[in-house]
Design a protein around this nucleic acid. Structure first.
Lengths: 235, 235
DNA sequence: AAATGACCAAATTCGTCATTTGGTTCAGTC
DNA sequence: GACTGAACCAAATGACGAATTTGGTCATTT
């Protein structure tokens, strides 16, 4: 059974906390394991009891952001199945991306913060499996099946358009480009409206919402397990 | 009266051509004026008869791409005012961005191709005034006024959503990110459909289309003049 | 008037090497 | 068995001077 390092050791938790603070403050570049150990009040060697490599620790950092995002979404979906509607899920997704620094940094390819890690194969894998495009691939068919998206549009075209919209919102919300001049107070509402405009009015029959939420939760569980496996201690 | 260097000198045209080829092939980094002069079959000094600085020449290079784009759009609009419809203009805009290497590179902040020029204040200025956001600021009010976009949506929200959609399409079409997995055969049609979904059905009254096209042409003329001024010979 | 190319100062590159840094290990302590 | 920290060593750094390159100028030529 996969188990996270911090669940069985207080020092591992302190190391993670210290690493998180330091990376957020100064970035990966030039951050040494000695510094992390110092701030966590452990010796350098201790770090290697929990992670086999410096990079493992760092990748684990934003793996944990994804994990937290998954858990939050699962909680919301359980409490209120209505969250599974596209007009509610996509704004949440954008907000979640903004809220989690590492996901945000990965999304915007923030080299200052993440250093070479951005283009590292392992983090690329993370994004490929957990990124917005992968999500749409899974979610859109479910939405179409349960009358939460119009079906008078070919799947590929619809997915392409929705992907563009989502990436566009992510870019304008996350990145600080000079290009994106227009901004707005309540992005969530705009995203919601735009998604509805694209996918058409949501017309769920009885049970459709719950079924969609269940499918979403199942998918989240699968991803969570895979994610956990990839950042857990390899015994 | 602003006049482009290549309009009054054959050697200037050859220099531009040589520079263009070389930049597209190998990027700005490490490209010397001696090389450009060699390929253009002129002496180094000749280049400085037309441009006061190496950087002037390079900025002029993608200034000319914008100029070409403007001229193409103006021609299309003149031949067929219908092109001024949002559902036709935005796909064209995306396509134009793809077709012009320097605009594309500027959009995707391609450091390999453009080197430090990407984040240079002068090219930033170019993008700020000619980029997609600036365009929407001008175009959307016209569309709304002439029944080519729904007005039951606040201007800011609508602009924000449309901007996100446009940037999203630009990103997926231009950039080669691993994120954007979903792709499609005929992006133009998808863009068109997505724009229509966002802005609502176009319901122009008599004269609306022509008025929109005229406004677009007027705006293009203003931009073209400013652009020309900024890359023309400073006499 | 248009074009050239030798010329120069400033910047960049190169090669070399002593020094430091920093990820990882492991023998030993608590 | 959790933890330490001294020790190891491959890789990075930086100093530094020499050699080369290169953006820009200008007297001269065509």
């Amino acid at each position: 059974m996969a188990v996270l390092a911090e669940q069985e050791s207080g020092s591992a938790a302190r190391i993670l906390g210290a690493a998180r603070e330091l990376v957020l403050k100064r970035g990966v570049k030039g951050l040494t394991v000695a510094e992390i150990a110092d701030r966590a009040h452990v010796a350098k060697g201790t770090i290697y009891l929990h992670w086999s490599t410096r990079e493992d620790l760092l990748v684990g950092l934003f793996g944990r952001d994804f994990l937290a995002e998954h858990d939050e979404l699962a909680e919301l979906l359980t409490a209120d199945p209505d969250v599974a509607r596209p007009s509610r899920l996509l704004p949440l997704l954008v907000q979640a991306t903004i809220d989690h620094p590492f996901i945000r940094a990965l999304q915007s390819e923030d080299d200052d913060l993440l250093g070479v890690l951005t283009q590292h194969p392992r983090s690329a894998k993370l994004l490929e499996n957990l990124g917005p495009a992968a999500l749409l691939r899974v979610a859109l068919p479910v939405w179409r099946r349960h009358h939460l998206a119009r079906t008078d549009w070919s799947f590929d075209d619809q997915a392409y358009a929705l992907q563009a919209l989502l990436l566009g919102f992510l870019n304008t919300a996350v990145e600080r480009r000079a290009l994106a001049i227009i901004s707005v107070d309540e992005p969530a509402q705009v995203i919601s409206a735009a998604v509805t405009a694209l996918l058409g009015p949501e017309q769920p029959g009885p049970g459709d919402i719950q079924a969609t939420a269940d499918a979403a939760l199942a998918e989240l569980a699968v991803r969570r397990a895979a994610l956990l496996e990839s950042i857990a201690k390899s015994d």
